[in-house]
Design a protein around this nucleic acid. Structure first.
Length: 999
RNA sequence: GCUCAAGUGGCGGAAUUGGUAGACGCGCUGGAUUCAAAAUCCAGUUCUUCGGAGUGCGGGUUCGAUUCCCGCCUUGAGUACCA
């Protein structure tokens, strides 16, 4: 009986679906384990072989945990709001919901055919109103919360309001807007309702504020920092500009310290934690206030080096700093204004690209040194960023290279305040090994002590305080898009009001077109039925907006990360209509035990989701404040792109110039119509045979450009190039890299090359060049898992993806290699089923059989625990080879072996399990227990090495004493031959390991 | 620039605590089977001047280093005038 994988796989996939084999219950006697994948965005292109890698790994782990007796939650869903469906809607008019539904169908079919053990009864879709109802609900909770620094957690705004009413805001220690006026209880109580709302908005965890945002005109929307790559949009590569807009923001900065500290408790990769640490960007230092000469205003700066305060020789403000216009002297006005104009013109991208150029202007104004009271000139320069700190720095050229360069460039003094340090060439930027000098009361102190004392003295003057700064900015939460969650928000007199949670969800309105309105409003501005009636508590038509109790609804929608910040909790109780999830469910599942996904979410999704989790923890909604205990980033599977080399050659030739002189020239000529076989370059061929047509082209090219007359035999080919190559679809190339020229010429993509010429190698072959790149449609190197499943089966695909290499590493895909694992499965099948049916007997296993089995159990278990899935596949192959050689038919061996294989190749395992006479699914069978007694050896093949180099091996009993081993080794003929009569200096014997003779 | 990760045959990779470097697979070579092909099976496959050499390069520790330490080079990823 043959291994008919297509039939077997279909049969068991249907069985699992019908019997709901992988449905997880929210209560069990077993311990719980939650395995989660980052859910996919269902794109129109479907899955390629790179996508399932992480899913296969998590599926193996989930199945393994079931064998180990855990109640496993392994859900899947779709992150189904997003830009591509909306772009498609703009182009075709098809509703994004329809596009999304189609794409999900394709995804589901592709996922099903790989045999994942997902509990599909818990599927969530972020674009489903029954799901985004709860995304909207969390938004309302955030709006109704503020961050209390005294209790170090989020609290309901009611507690804030009662504080204001009883004592004003003087003693409120909140994370809030920097520019907040102080008021007494009396003043608060006398404020108008609008005024009170305005003030509260500055404290809420989600708030409306005028922010400078990254505006992408081509997409008509705001982008988050992590949606911008090298100054252009991640999607589409469109230019991005800075623009001020009123936007919803999330006060993630309130959680900066907790997000940082929380990392230490997580079993995530160090590199990922490091990215988050960099993103949060904590720096400890001081805020210092400089008084101005002849002005009442002051300049606040943030510095990490208060110890260098006596090294300040100038101050630099960002050109956008609000004080610039106020303090600039009339004499400097022209220069400063010209500079501001010039920097405003330079885009963010230019400024980034051009770090080297030093520019700036003197304002003519002076600040006063807090201790020496000396005047300090105030400059502006674009190396100071308006968005970080206060947009102003105290410049210490001896201790900061940028200040140093600026000072050198503009001839500003560079006082040295470091003892015994040479600053004639560059600044001394290190905090270590410095002793402060020329600094009054700081002299002789190191960085730590001097900083502390400087802050103490500044505090006494009322001109400074120790401060910690974070780079983490509040997250902009509004998008000018259609296909996203609507806000549960309407506006009364311009102030945002939350719709009561009991009226959720506020579903997306229908619009006629998905573009921004003519007046530049977001696409929801096109909706006709999009106003809120506070009497009927329902969405009504816009045309009644001027009536009482009918108000405009928010036109923005939420960003992509909204839905993905709560899905992992919702899976615990996905159909709950009255709560986001029951306390019973969340207290049972608690948090994700294993989370697998791509590293591209390091500073986006993974940071925002942690923020929401901490907020929910503060609100008492979840029992733990980190949502994922362990996280693994799967590496990318790369594509092997194929390229056609376009011919370019370098020739030297002799000719006769216009005036009759002989000339020798070297010239490079491109032949865009000629393709040359890659194998040609590997052939050690010195000359190139130009065919007639080429020769003609060749002459024409040169003759046209240079008026020369040539002698045929004096043209020499001295070099060629294979740059200028074009991508060719990998499906037109066979496994030996040979191009199917016929197919290529008839392919619609390559119509323009229909009449091109092909230069073959000596063996009449035409091969393509290969290179490893990211797998993507635009590179024509995409391999579809459907084709692999059809030809080799899902079990082969699963095994091969794991076999390629370590899970976390990037690795190239090569379809040819799949025959290895496919061959293994066929051999494995034959171990159980021969030509005459089942091979299984009840014979007692031999010692060799048991040794193979238990060696395999041990290795497989260790490998899975260490996520070393690639080596497990090797282990299976070794076991299969050994048992085949041993002609093992014993049920006692082959039955437990099936359980070991089952997480990796579940279909074949189920089928053989069934053929062995089991009626239940193998998925709940107990994992075999390792028994070390079968691996005990009585002798060891000792490597005998001389000066550390192994020369031969020797079989010796393991219970031999050191002396006996030495005796046996030294009398061995090969030892004597190796020593050639010399006496060894030393003999190292490690029993059970090695013998090393040092001579 | 900074941070992190990684450099091992023709290729993907293995060696989990310092102890026989190259497991397993692909590819390649030869053979068996076949009218032939596919499939399958068997043998070989780091290099070598056959002494040896060899895990990016140069040092070090050790009886012994892919593994530990110091210095460098290269590649990939992230991040960037962050005061």
């Amino acid at each position: 009986m043959q291994y008919h994988f297509n039939d077997i796989e279909k049969k068991w996939q249907d069985y699992w679906a019908k019997h709901q084999t992988f449905k997880a219950e929210n209560h069990s006697d077993k311990p719980k384990y939650y395995v989660l994948d980052m859910f996919p965005y269902p794109s129109g292109a479907g899955l390629h072989v790179g996508h399932p890698l992480g899913y296969i790994a998590s599926d193996i782990y989930a199945r393994y945990k079931r064998h180990k007796g855990f109640n496993v939650l392994h859900p899947q869903g779709y992150d189904s709001f997003g830009l591509p469906a909306e772009q498609y809607a703009i182009q075709t008019g098809q509703h994004p919901a329809v596009t999304t539904e189609d794409n999900i169908k394709t995804y589901r079919r592709q996922l099903d055919q790989i045999g994942f053990s997902f509990d599909w009864s818990r599927e969530v879709r972020t674009s489903d109103p029954s799901y985004y109802k709860w995304t909207q609900w969390i938004f309302i909770q955030l709006f109704e919360s503020w961050y209390n620094n005294d209790t170090n957690k989020a609290e309901h705004v009611e507690t804030l309001i009662s504080k204001f009413a009883s004592e004003g805001n003087a003693n409120v220690n909140a994370v809030c807007d920097d520019q907040i006026e102080s008021f007494s209880a009396l003043e608060w109580n006398n404020f108008s309702s609008e005024k009170q709302q305005e003030i509260l908005l500055k404290y809420r965890l989600t708030y409306l504020a005028e922010t400078e945002v990254n505006w992408c005109p081509a997409l008509g929307t705001v982008l988050a920092n992590d949606e911008i790559v090298n100054g252009v949009s991640e999607r589409g590569g469109h230019p991005v500009v800075r623009k001020k807009m009123t936007q919803w923001s999330m006060r993630i900065s309130a959680y900066a310290e907790r997000l940082l500290q929380g990392l230490d408790t997580l079993d995530w990769t160090e590199s990922l934690k490091e990215s988050q640490r960099n993103w949060i960007g904590k720096s400890v230092g001081a805020s210092v206030t400089f008084k101005l000469k002849n002005h009442d205003e002051v300049i606040d700066v943030f510095t990490t080096r208060p110890d260098t305060i006596f090294g300040v020789s100038f101050m630099t403000l960002a050109p956008e700093h609000e004080l610039v216009s106020k303090i600039t002297t009339p004499e400097q006005k022209t220069e400063v204004e010209a500079y501001i104009e010039a920097t405003a013109k330079r885009s963010e991208r230019d400024r980034m690209a051009d770090v080297k150029t030093i520019s700036g202007a003197f304002t003519g104004a002076y600040a006063e040194h807090p201790f020496t009271k000396e005047p300090i000139p105030i400059w502006i320069g674009d190396y100071v960023l308006a968005g970080y700190g206060t947009g102003a720095v105290m410049s210490v050229p001896c201790g900061d290279q940028r200040d140093y360069d600026f000072a050198k460039h503009f001839n500003i003094a560079i006082p040295n305040i470091f003892e015994g340090v040479d600053i004639s060439e560059e600044a001394y930027g290190s905090k270590d090994n410095v002793i402060i000098a020329n600094s009054d009361f700081l002299n002789g102190l190191n960085y730590k002590k001097a900083s502390k004392l400087a802050i103490y003295e500044l505090e006494k003057l009322g001109q400074g305080v120790g401060k910690t700064n974070y780079r983490l900015r509040d997250a902009v939460f509004s998008r000018q898009r259609y296909w996203g969650e609507p806000f549960p928000v309407y506006y009364v007199k311009g102030m945002p009001q939350m719709i009561h949670a009991k009226h959720l969800p506020i579903t997306l309105p229908e619009v006629e077109k998905y573009l921004p309105t003519e007046t530049g409003e977001p696409p929801l501005g096109n909706a006709i039925v999009w106003a809120w009636n506070t009497e009927s508590n329902s969405v009504v038509s816009n045309d009644k907006i001027n009536h009482t109790s009918i108000y405009p609804l928010e036109l923005n929608t939420m960003p992509g990360w909204a839905g993905s910040s709560q899905y992992f909790n919702r899976y615990m109780d996905p159909h709950n209509d009255t709560e986001i999830f029951s306390q019973e469910a969340v207290n049972y599942w608690k948090q994700v035990d294993l989370y697998i996904g791509g590293s591209e979410h390091a500073t986006g999704h993974l940071l925002y989701a942690r923020f929401w989790q901490k907020f929910m923890f503060d609100k008492g909604l979840v029992p733990v404040d980190e949502f994922a205990k362990k996280l693994i980033n799967q590496g990318m599977i790369l594509g092997t792109s194929a390229f056609l080399n376009r011919l370019s050659i370098q020739v030297s030739y002799k000719g006769v110039g216009p005036s009759g002189y002989a000339l020798e020239k070297i010239k490079r000529i491109d032949f865009p119509n000629y393709f040359i076989s890659e194998s040609w370059f590997k052939t050690p061929m010195a000359r190139m045979s130009l065919n007639l047509k080429m020769r003609e082209d060749f002459y024409q090219k040169i003759l046209k450009k240079e008026d020369l007359k040539y002698l045929d035999e004096e043209i020499y080919l001295i070099g060629f190039f294979n740059e200028n190559r074009i991508h060719v679809d990998v499906n037109l190339v066979d496994s030996s890299d040979e191009l199917n020229i016929e197919k290529f010429k008839n392919h619609s993509l390559y119509r323009e090359y229909k009449n091109s010429y092909f230069i073959f190698d000596n063996f009449k072959k035409f091969t393509v060049a290969r290179d490893v790149e990211k797998m993507s449609k635009s590179k024509y190197n995409v391999v579809n898992p459907d084709a692999i499943c059809e030809q080799y089966g899902a079990d082969s695909l699963r095994l091969y993806e794991m076999f390629l290499g370590p899970l976390e590493q990037a690795k190239p895909w090569n379809t040819a290699g799949i025959t290895g694992v496919h061959g293994f499965l066929k051999k494995f099948w034959k171990l159980y089923i021969g030509d005459n049916g089942l091979n299984i007997t009840d014979t007692k296993p031999t010692a060799d059989n048991l040794k193979t089995l238990h060696k395999t159990i041990k290795k497989v278990e260790e490998d899975i625990e260490n996520f070393s899935f690639n080596t497990t596949v090797s282990t299976f192959m070794i076991a299969c080879n050994e048992l085949t050689a041993q002609k093992c038919t014993s049920r006692g061996i082959l039955e437990p072996l099936l359980v070991l294989l089952s997480p990796y190749a579940p279909h074949i395992a189920e089928e053989l399990w069934n053929q062995l006479g089991h009626n239940d699914s193998i998925s709940t069978a107990t994992f075999p227990k390792f028994d070390p007694s079968h691996l005990v050896e009585s002798s060891k093949e000792y490597p005998i090495s001389f000066n550390g180099k192994t020369k031969f091996t020797m079989e010796l009993p393991l219970d031999l004493s050191k002396e006996a081993i030495e005796k046996a080794v030294m009398s061995h003929e090969k030892t004597i031959a190796q020593l050639e009569g010399r006496t060894p200096k030393k003999v190292i014997i490690v029993p059970g390991k090695i013998v090393n003779i040092v001579g």
